[in-house]
């Protein structure tokens, strides 16, 4: 395993990665918009004006209005909140479970490891958002259930990654030395092994945020995500696609927002990966 580059060197390498810089700028913008949506949005995202339904862009409504006359820009800005919450929330929840399961599996080995690997195999048999669709279809559509459904499969990737890293790191000399001088197992794991195994996990988590945002939008598109009138980008595309002939902007604008956000996280992930030089490790 390559030595972890010092923080400053790492930041300098990310800063030199043009795509990563552009990506992080968009990510910061997304987070700012999500946090400041109530201040930035010109209208209440749920306020209806039926007589102005499906209006195109105008001076008062820069991006136009949807079927119910709600301001598209305001809904887009508030939609960033849902994407940010789901993206960060799913990854945090998945990481917490994955970290615990992967650490126990890699560190304890034996039956625990065997059991974990079988469970991972079972969950991975449900491709893409199939398991999330199954779970939200029975639990009912809501933000909380979307987080549960996406994390139900999301943790497996992190756990497998951490398990693999632990199996590799624990054989290294400095861990063996710590064990030889009598370092207790929990300290060995928390102080010596885990901090040296997280690099690829950070990269994977960056891509994971993008995946979660798309998955939430996909679930909302199918009516299984956040419920109306909450402005999820996926639900906005679904509402808009029925008016493609008369109001194509209702579909194109939220789609563009998702694509730019996902691209930003992917570029950032690429940049972090290159800066950490963990390409080999996360394969």
């Amino acid at each position: 395993m390559s030595e972890r580059p010092p923080r400053r060197r790492f930041l300098r390498r990310v800063a030199r990665h043009r795509a990563a810089v552009a990506g992080s700028a968009v990510v910061v913008l997304l987070l700012l918009v999500a946090a400041l949506a109530p201040l930035l949005a010109p209208f209440d995202p749920a306020a209806q004006s039926l007589d102005a339904g499906l209006s195109g862009p105008s001076w008062s409504h820069w991006l136009g209005q949807d079927r119910l006359g709600r301001d598209l820009l305001s809904r887009l800005l508030y939609g960033a909140r849902i994407s940010a919450v789901v993206g960060l929330g799913t990854v945090s929840l998945s990481l917490a479970i994955g970290l615990l399961a992967g650490s126990l599996s890699g560190f304890l080995g034996g039956r625990v490891d065997h059991l974990f690997m079988r469970l991972a195999d079972i969950l991975l048999a449900f491709p893409g958002i199939l398991l999330a669709i199954a779970i939200t279809s029975v639990l009912g559509p809501s933000l909380r259930n979307v987080l549960i459904a996406l994390s139900a499969l999301g943790w497996v990737g992190y756990a497998r990654l951490i398990r693999g890293q632990i199996l590799k790191v624990r054989e290294l000399e400095f861990v063996q030395s710590a064990r030889a001088v009598g370092s207790p197992p929990v300290r060995l794991l928390l102080v010596h092994i885990l901090p040296n195994a997280v690099s690829p996990v950070i990269v994977e988590a960056t891509f994971g945020i993008a995946r979660a945002i798309v998955a939430e939008a996909g679930l909302s598109f199918l009516g299984l995500g956040v419920q109306p009138p909450a402005p999820s980008w996926g639900a906005m595309i679904n509402e808009g696609r029925h008016f493609l002939f008369v109001a194509p902007h209702l579909t194109t604008v939220p789609g563009l927002a998702i694509m730019i956000t996902v691209m930003a996280f992917n570029f950032l992930g690429d940049g972090i990966r290159d800066a950490m030089d963990v390409r080999e490790e996360i394969r």
Partner: peptide
């Protein structure tokens, strides 16, 4: 390739309808 990876199918589908059908 990056575009293909970042474009969700629930957006690409309506977009293709918009361009090639409508």
């Amino acid at each position: 390739a990056m575009l293909g990876l970042s474009m969700p199918n629930f957006w690409l589908g309506p977009l293709l309808i918009l361009i090639f059908s409508i």
